[in-house]
Every structure is written in C-alpha cells, then in structure tokens.
C-alpha cells in the first residue's frame, strides 16, 4: 500500500469515529485522532490478522491500552471485515456488542479487555511470553499506550519484566499528544521526557512523528530488527488531529459531535480519504 493510501485510510477511520460517536451520543473522539495513522499502518499493512478466524493462534496481537479510544479500533475492525460496518452505530448501546471499552469476548478481533489505564504493556508482556513459550514464531504483540497512562506504576513494572525477558516480539507505541483527561500531561506529572525513561528501563527506543506514515513503517521495521529487547516507538502526535475543531483541544477528550460538527469534519476530510 502507498503512503497516500494509508493516509487516506487513517482519515477514513477518523471520520468513522466522528460519525459513530455522533450516532452513539457518547464516546471519546479526540484520543482516537492522534493514533489514526498508527492504526492505519498496523491494521491495513503490518499486522497478520484473519477476520474469518479472529482467534487464529499465530496472528499478531493488538492491545489498545488507552481503551477509551476504542471507536477507532472498532472502525478499523469493521473496515477490516471482522464485523459489518453497520454495527458501529450501536457503540455503547445496550443490545450492541460494541462495549464502551474493548471486550475480548464480545467483539471479534479484540484480543484483551482494556480501558482501565496502564495495563496494556503488562498484558502484552504476558501475550508475548505466551507466544514465545508455545513456539509461535514471526508474530508480534503491538500495544498503543497513551502518555497520560504512563503515570500508572504498573507501566513501569511491566517495562522491567518485558526487558528482563528480552521480548523482541513486543512493540509498543506511545501516543504522546500531551493531553489527558484533566489537562496537559506536562502540567499534571513529571512524566516527560518519555523516551529517556524507557531507555532507562532497557527498551529499544525510537522517537518519530506519529502522523508520518513512512516514519511509522520504518520504525516498525527497525523495531523488528531488535530481537533481544522490547521496543517502544515514541510518537509525537496531536490530539484531535485533522478534525479542525478538535485539534489540540482537550474539550474533545470526551464529547459528542453535533450533526453540524459531523458535516464540518466530512468537509475537512473530503479530499483526504
């Protein structure tokens, strides 16, 4: 796939999010936009998946540790063919299988429960160990963590364990948009600079522009070359990216777009999908 094609898929996913959160009347659109380009590369180029057999043992695994951004995960799964696109409109409704946060038993293609922040790296560590112990080769566990959730202690417990077990099959993306529910990450904690900390925990660390499709691709290729360390790809991103009224605006952490705002988003993305 070309960079342009993947970029268009990312924007299509962004609009899917705006439309489904509008229809559902509830959800977190802003946090979806900063990871859209990463999601496009992972789901539409990189990951070994089989929508006909979602639990295929040799598949790559994906964990959206920042589970509140699930509208974009659900959109990616629907467009990948794990379930009909029409199901997206049921998001967060009783009777729909699309739970408010990812549920591995109800939603085809979801590999773990997520949403309680900070747990994705530890669960991914277990998955990576499990695959390795069962001799499954050439598969990877991908995790997306937010920056705010790296304030959770368990992130660093898991960072130690994954490094100790030299999990080269674990690749984590840090979505560094410098926003969390309550404000700027840099105001609420002393987390930044993020790459230094992962370096100190003996991870293979890369820093890229999280909206540069080519850079995302290259970083994954580089990460795969490192077989004795888990990898973190620190992605500088913009919360709300490509939706004009959402960009870098934390009011859209959790908010429902109106019909008018959906139209504005459609207009903004019309030639970019």
């Amino acid at each position: 796939m070309t960079v342009d094609e993947l970029s268009r898929i990312a924007n299509r996913l962004r609009l899917d999010v705006v439309e489904t959160v509008h229809l559902a009347g509830d959800g977190h659109p802003g946090p979806c936009m900063s990871i859209a380009d990463i999601m496009a590369v992972l789901f539409f180029e990189e990951m070994k998946l089989d929508p006909e057999n979602p639990r295929w043992p040799e598949r790559d695994r994906f964990i959206l540790s920042k589970g509140h951004a699930c509208p974009i995960l659900y959109a990616a799964l629907a467009r990948k063919g794990f379930f009909p696109y029409e199901e997206l409109k049921g998001l967060r409704s009783l009777g729909s299988f699309l739970q408010g946060h990812p549920d591995m038993n109800k939603i085809p293609g979801v590999d773990t429960v997520s949403g309680s922040l900070g747990n994705g790296v530890a669960i991914g560590t277990g998955m990576a160990l499990g695959c390795r112990m069962q001799g499954i080769k050439d598969n990877y566990v991908y995790v997306i963590v937010g920056d705010g959730e790296e304030e959770e202690g368990i992130i660093w417990e898991a960072a130690m364990a994954a490094a100790k077990y030299e999990l080269g099959n674990l690749i984590v993306f840090a979505d560094l948009n410098n926003h969390q529910s309550g404000g700027h990450v840099t105001d609420l904690s002393s987390l930044y600079p993020v790459p230094d900390k992962w370096q100190a925990f003996h991870w293979h660390v890369q820093s890229i522009d999280g909206h540069d499709i080519g850079a995302i691709r290259n970083a994954i290729a580089e990460a795969k070359k490192v077989t004795d360390k888990p990898s973190i790809i620190c992605c500088k991103t913009i919360k709300g990216k490509n939706i004009p009224y959402m960009e870098d605006n934390n009011a859209w952490h959790k908010r429902t777009p109106t019909a008018e705002e959906v139209e504005i988003a459609r207009e903004a993305l019309r030639d970019k999908m």
Binding site: R61, M104, A122, I123, G124, G126, G130, Q134, G153, A161
Partner: peptide
C-alpha cells in the same frame, strides 16, 4: 510487582497458557 504478575498471567492465558 503483584499487579504486573496478574496482568502478565492474563496475557499468558489469552494465548492458551
């Protein structure tokens, strides 16, 4: 690191361990 231990166990269990 008990929290890590339980989450790692959860991850392992998803792979059939």
């Amino acid at each position: 690191a008990e929290q890590d231990a339980v989450d790692i166990a959860a991850g392992l269990a998803t792979t059939g361990m």
